[in-house]
Write a protein that binds this DNA or RNA. Structure first.
Lengths: 150, 150
DNA sequence: TAGAAAGCTGAAAATGACTTGCAATTGAGA
DNA sequence: TCTCAATTGCAAGTCATTTTCAGCTTTCTA
């Protein structure tokens, strides 16, 4: 993990930015988080460790971490963004129930292949992606009608 | 298109809701829109046609149109949702440049196959999905470094 | 290694998309 | 036509995120 932190330091410096304790602290906290996180949760986590870091700083650091490839936004729920650490794995897809808001993750290797192919075939640099599927979960799906005409 | 409107009317009635001129007007305006749209644009479009429809009504109608399968949210940019008409085609993917905010569409049949497979293999009812890829477009990609350690 | 310039930070105010409360209006069944 | 619940527009409210700003670090230079 320290190599990662060191890499982040280099990344920050290369961009002509200052390497501050806040930025490092935020990254460390994120790296210690196993699951998805949102800004609020991260803020409270830091606060509970007596950190004085403000939400503003978290909001300001997140784009850097994304551009550096350390984290990715994985989905949005209720107008709020959720992130996770980018490890070796490519991110997965998220199913979100529009009724009960349940979020369920899934992996499918074909998605990763597809994304990789698309990147290779393009002149773009892919940093992160999300596949969000909205619909009704098994327990919410009854009583639904669609608009099949005729 | 009238069959669609008629279908929408049935859809609304089946749900015990009232079929109002506002709801129809909103759907008609959306159907006449070729491209992606957001609430603000739609509102201004309606306004320019001397419609008195408020933004609140648009915001209240959109979830209905989504549940009915008439439109889908296709991506978010700058905290704003963008929608488009659901025709026969399954939606495509969107590439969004994190620097210049350019949005580019792409189609890949493999994505549709994948989504269809996932739906068949699950107990979920898929209503809409988005695949958003964030990164750097060709003209913005220079000067970038990643954090490959060693 | 002091001093300064440029970046950062926290706190608070601002923003902006979206939602909600409310009084007036309208659709739809009786 | 009557009646009542659903709907509408407007204005006020929410809430995540962004910005402002004054004070504080980091880093560069002499």
């Amino acid at each position: 993990m320290d190599a990662l932190i060191e890499g982040f330091k280099q990344f920050i410096k290369k961009r002509g930015l200052k390497y501050t304790s806040e930025r490092e602290e935020i990254l460390r906290e994120i790296l210690s988080t196993k699951d998805h996180f949102d800004v609020d949760t991260l803020y409270l986590q830091l606060k509970s460790k007596n950190s004085k870091i403000s939400k503003a700083s978290i909001y300001r650091t997140i784009p850097l971490l994304i551009e550096g490839g350390y984290i990715q936004e994985v989905y949005k729920k209720g107008g709020q963004s959720y992130y996770e650490v980018t490890l070796n794995k490519r991110p997965h897809l998220h199913f979100i129930c529009i009724k009960c808001s349940e979020v369920k993750e899934a992996y499918d290797p074909r998605l990763n292949e597809l994304i990789d192919d698309l990147e290779r075939a393009s002149n773009y640099r892919f940093l992160t992606f999300h596949l969000e599927i909205f619909g009704l979960c098994p327990s919410c799906r009854e009583g639904k009608v669609s608009h099949e005409t005729q």
